[in-house]
């Protein structure tokens, strides 16, 4: 795999910011009440991420090491302001739905994390692809969470887009899923599912004589393999 494609694969699958690195939990939990909101948040973050990675990578030899965090914040904050004004001008529906969470992209730890961990050490070209990969990974994760929360909690599919559909009248929405607890539940279930797939893929070591019931097990000491 060439190193540009590797960056994309890394951001979307191997180090998915939401499901693997568990970064940016605040927008992940707060705005994913529908697939459209999740996608909007993901794409806005991606735009900021790509451009900030490009700029910070280009400026990496100019920014003094001691003041690098304030310098990154200035770059990111300017970009977020531009994105915010653009969304407000062209997609007011999304602007109303995301509200406070757009300016909060400034402090999204994915953006600062990539600037610190990747863009400040690598060439602008690679940094752009890193931003794209991470941004896509974030967008896919948020859309996915939003999709399930919307489906179960409101009984609609892709509302706010031209492809909006809703479930038949007889379905009664489990409205806890569009509220805060539902965000945690859906996120946890998706991560559990992905981890289970991962374990199946990599093979799981089990201690001999383990019936999976940790409560009645005497040998909790030697069991770290099975538990992890």
């Amino acid at each position: 795999m060439n190193k540009y494609a590797e960056r994309l694969y890394n951001g979307i699958v191997k180090e998915n910011p939401t499901f693997i690195l568990m970064l940016g939990m605040c927008p992940t939990l707060a705005v994913t009440t529908s697939a459209f909101n999740g996608l909007g948040m993901g794409l806005s973050t991606m735009v900021v991420l790509v451009v900030s990675n490009l700029l910070i990578s280009a400026l990496r030899n100019i920014i003094p090491d001691k003041v690098r965090i304030p310098a990154y914040i200035v770059v990111v904050a300017s970009l977020v302001t531009i994105v915010q004004l653009l969304i407000q001008a062209y997609i007011p529906v999304l602007y109303d739905a995301l509200g406070l969470y757009i300016p909060l992209i400034v402090v999204n730890c994915i953006i600062l994390g990539r600037a610190e961990a990747y863009a400040s050490k690598n060439s602008p070209g690679l940094s752009v692809f890193d931003g794209l990969g991470m941004g896509f990974g974030f967008s896919i994760a948020l859309t996915c969470i939003g999709f399930f929360r919307e489906l179960i909690g409101a009984g609609t599919l892709l509302s706010g887009t031209p492809f909006a559909m809703s479930l038949p009248e007889a379905y009664e929405p489990v409205s806890i899923f569009v509220l805060a607890p539902g965000a945690f539940l859906v996120l946890a279930l998706i991560i559990a599912f992905l981890n289970a797939m991962n374990i199946q893929h990599n093979g799981n070591k089990k201690v001999e004589g383990c019936d999976g019931n940790c409560a009645s097990c005497g040998q909790s000491q030697g069991c770290t393999d099975a538990k992890n």
């Binding site: 009664e172 929405p173 489990v174 409205s175 806890i176 899923f177 509220l179 607890p181 559990a192 019931n213 940790c214 409560a215």
Partner: peptide, 26 residues
């Protein structure tokens, strides 16, 4: 069960279910 079965649950299952239903189908 997801928290490890009997003796491992972090909150009373019946109460958690009641709150779940109360929020969902007020």
């Amino acid at each position: 069960q997801l928290f490890g079965g009997i003796g491992q649950n972090f909150m009373n299952p019946a109460m958690a279910a009641r709150c779940f239903l109360l929020i969902s189908f007020a």
